[in-house]
């Protein structure tokens, strides 16, 4: 069995774990902003996707190409994928890629994967940590006309096939799919491993490959905002009234008992 060729799609996003009070919306530009000291990260589920690919590489060997689309992609953020064991980093980076929707994003990623040419498995996160859409992976699979399995919590590669545990409502199912295939990965797969110092140093020396729309055979009118189907008309933060009543006591235990009394008094229980 020759080495398995894998592509992992990773997106740079605003840190989803930032405290909710840190998120602000600029209504003039319809964009979310976070304080400067909160750095962007790789989407959480994209990290799980990266780990899925690394687990296969550990066992069966293989090559991992990381693909990321955006503009002004922070090198120190995205290079984490190389530091943990990715072999190659391709950035679809251009102004014209900005403000796309799931459609234009999936289309450009699929065209880039076509250009990469040979692939056995494509990994995506189950959803991005900013738009929470859950579309791009399936979109890539449809455009490339390859099979897709969602919500993988475990992936093994055996004899030209992937054996995938998919999360279903009351447990999991084991599904087999022949290569090439697209898999979306869920959180139960496990956290992305830490990078070893050696990996970090090697990654620092590697340069990502940067592709513009023309490099993947697309016109600027086919990507980003120009190529989208769905238009963002408004971004806003719903207001909510703070109203928590803190129940106290001499000790935590007494506070607990007082909480019960409070709930009774207010007829909640």
């Amino acid at each position: 069995m020759p080495d398995i060729k894998m592509v992992v799609c990773c997106k740079q996003v605003a840190d989803p774990e930032a405290p909710p009070t840190a998120f602000k919306v600029d209504s003039a530009t319809n964009k979310v902003s976070l304080p400067r000291d909160i750095k962007p990260v790789i989407g959480q589920y994209d990290e799980f996707a990266m780990e899925a690919a690394l687990k296969i590489k550990d066992k069966a060997g293989g090559k991992i190409t990381v693909l990321s689309l955006g503009n002004n992609i922070a090198r120190d953020v995205i290079k984490k994928t190389l530091a943990v064991g990715g072999d190659e980093l391709i950035l679809l980076e251009d102004e014209s890629f900005e403000e796309g929707d799931s459609w234009s994003t999936a289309y450009a990623l699929a065209m880039a994967i076509k250009k990469i040419g040979e692939y056995d498995l494509i990994f995506c996160g189950r959803e991005s940590s900013d738009w929470d859409a859950g579309q791009v992976g399936l979109g890539i699979a449809e455009i490339l006309a390859i099979p897709a399995l969602t919500l993988a919590r475990k992936v093994e590669a055996i004899d030209g096939k992937a054996r995938v545990e998919q999360v279903i409502p009351d447990g999991y199912q084991v599904t087999e799919v022949s290569f090439p295939a697209m898999l979306t990965v869920t959180s139960e797969l496990g956290n992305l491993r830490y990078a070893a110092l050696k990996g970090i140093m090697a990654a620092a020396k590697k340069q990502p490959i940067v592709w513009k729309p023309a490099d993947i055979g697309l016109e600027p009118s086919q990507v980003g905002a120009a190529g989208r189907r769905v238009k963002l008309v408004k971004l806003f933060q719903p207001t909510k009234e703070a109203k928590c009543e803190i129940v106290e006591g001499e000790s935590p235990a007494e506070a607990g008992a007082n909480l019960a009394i409070k709930l009774r008094e207010t007829k909640i229980i």
């Binding site: 989803p16 998120f23 919306v25 979310v32 929470d132 963002l232 008309v233 408004k234 971004l235 719903p238």
Partner: peptide, 9 residues
């Protein structure tokens, strides 16, 4: 969107 930190139309 953004995990519920904002909403989009």
């Amino acid at each position: 969107v953004y995990g519920g930190n904002a909403q989009a139309i």
